[in-house]
Design a binder for these strands. Structure first.
Lengths: 329, 329
DNA sequence: GTGAAAGCGCTAACAT
DNA sequence: ATGTTAGCGCTTTCAC
């Protein structure tokens, strides 16, 4: 592969001029530009990003941290990030951390190493203090999950309000024994959704029964099914459940079906995230939708603004309760 | 952020020595090494990959091309690629082409530009001739979908044999009106699976009815549902369908349910890919499993071997028919 | 309007 | 065992 000097030689100009043509500098004569462009074609030349990046000390690469590729929740957000970034001359590198600190470190180092310009973290398991250190002299944005102390700008939804809205919906349908299938409460969103759950109970004068709250290890289908099995051992069974993830709700739905109960007649179910499968289950699943694509574009725009030296503020996005068959009355 | 020279100065050595320490060269005295390591700590130094990569003219970054993030089919393969790559000192960049030639070009250029070392393409819509051009002087491997003319090494399964196996299973259950929900036959895998479908019909003496073959635009749920609607208008309805993707099968299942037919009693259904959700549907879905994770590690190992200058051969992996509720008799 | 030359941060060949 | 030096490919200041 030819380099800039060979092109310069071929065109009978200096490498500086070739560089000017590449960067569309306005000072180049039309004639020179044509000579250079011809040489570029002839030699099939492609400028090396590596050289350019080293010189400019930027890589135009953005890192997107997610715990794993398997959760469909992230796909639309990623689409938003990708579209916005590409449109603004950045590429994104999707980084699966597997909640593995070592792996996470690799990605942090890429930023320190100048191999990437900034990070959008959607990983709830991220090492917050390390991320904050990094944020001291690098562009960082959080998406969905965020820093409670607000030292890193984020885009997210009001999880407590969303959970409250779900509960209100179920309570209005007449349910008074509503289970919560929550993820590990080390995650901020889990704590927030639980808060919304509890606030609704309180406001509607329903008792809080701790045995109706099940905390899962992860968001796999199996965990949702496991929650239902656990609840079935109670003396007084719940008649509805709010799962903080569609994947959990789908696993729960499966188990409820297996047990011969009818949804929504015998048991009502609500998920969270509005993943595409949630509309394919039988019955279809009531869930909370976040404006995922828009969250993605917003996060990307915040990051790129940071890279341009601007200050950015955190943003709360709207959410929406989507009522489907699993909670019809 | 400090550079290698400042570290050298701080440690009272030359930058070459610092480089030696960084690269664990065996010729450095223990004493010198300690001095250097201390200086590195003091200055909080991180070597710049950019400088290193430029010098070594490699980026240790691998591109993985997929048409879109939304298809869960790819996740396990990607996990395999990622694990193997990271273990061998490479990072992967997940590239969504959206079947968009412009986007695709961006990624090809990254390889030409030395921003990435090689490509694993899982995109059936990839521009094969451009990819072949690139393969002339760059490391390329295909996964799942491949080059019919075998100019680019691939890892894949025997699609025709898999389709044949599915059909044999359905025929043995007594079905003689079996529909095929196929994707666009511009894709090699679609042509191969159709071939298996037709071969089975022929070998078991069943007539080929063209109206029982529905070609979809994409693999969305809706297309699967649409296929069922189309079949329902026929005078003689099929009693079973083989969908070349679980997503299509799940959409079809939904529509069959909506129409009040029972699966598998009234209608049998088989998918392809064994995505995790295929075991969560009601009834669970019979499908064909590919050794996805292993396909990923294999593809990555082939690519890295290429980068090391070795010749590699294409590999056919095994597949397995997983019989679940949707085809019980 | 264009060229010469320095330098981004690193590594490797060569010299000591 | 360590230092000196050149150069990977590019951009940009400074001359002209």
């Amino acid at each position: 592969m030819a380099n800039i000097h060979e092109v310069a030689k071929q065109a009978g100009v200096s490498s500086a001029t070739v560089s000017r043509v590449l960067n569309e500098a306005p000072t180049v004569t039309e004639k020179t530009r044509q000579k250079v462009e011809q040489a570029i074609k002839q030699l099939n030349y492609e400028p090396s990003m590596l050289g350019r990046n080293l010189r400019n000390s930027e890589s135009r690469l953005l890192l997107v941290l997610i715990p794993n590729f398997s959760n469909p929740y992230y796909t639309e957000i990623i689409n938003g990030i990708e579209d916005y970034s590409v449109e603004h001359g950045y590429n994104i590198l999707l980084c699966e951390t597997d909640s593995n600190p070592k792996r996470e470190n690799t990605f942090f180092n890429m930023v320190k190493n100048k191999l990437a310009d900034g990070i959008i973290s959607m990983d709830p398991t991220v090492n917050m203090s390390k991320l904050q250190d990094l944020a001291l002299d690098h562009a960082i944005v959080m998406c969905s999950e965020y820093d409670e102390y607000e030292r890193i700008p984020y885009v997210a939804i009001d999880n407590e309000a969303a959970a409250y809205k779900v509960m209100k919906h179920l309570i209005r349908l007449g349910h008074d024994q509503i289970a919560l299938i929550n993820s590990d409460e080390k995650f901020l969103y889990a704590r927030q959704r639980r808060k919304g759950y509890e606030r609704a109970l309180e406001e509607f004068g329903l008792p809080l029964r701790n045995e109706l709250i099940y905390n899962t290890q992860n968001l796999d289908f199996q965990e949702g099914a496991q929650a239902i099995r656990k609840f079935s051992q109670l003396e007084r069974n719940p008649t509805a459940a709010f799962a903080v993830s569609d994947t959990l709700a789908i696993g729960a739905l499966k188990e409820v079906n297996v047990r011969g109960l009818k949804v929504p007649e015998d048991f009502a179910l609500v998920g969270f995230d509005n993943i595409s499968f949630s509309n394919m289950t039988n019955p279809t699943l009531t869930t909370v939708a976040q404006p995922m694509y828009q969250m993605g574009t917003t996060a990307a725009s915040m990051l790129i603004k940071q890279l341009q030296g601007q200050e950015v503020d955190s943003i709360m996005m709207d959410h929406e309760l989507i009522i489907r068959e699993s909670t019809l009355n």
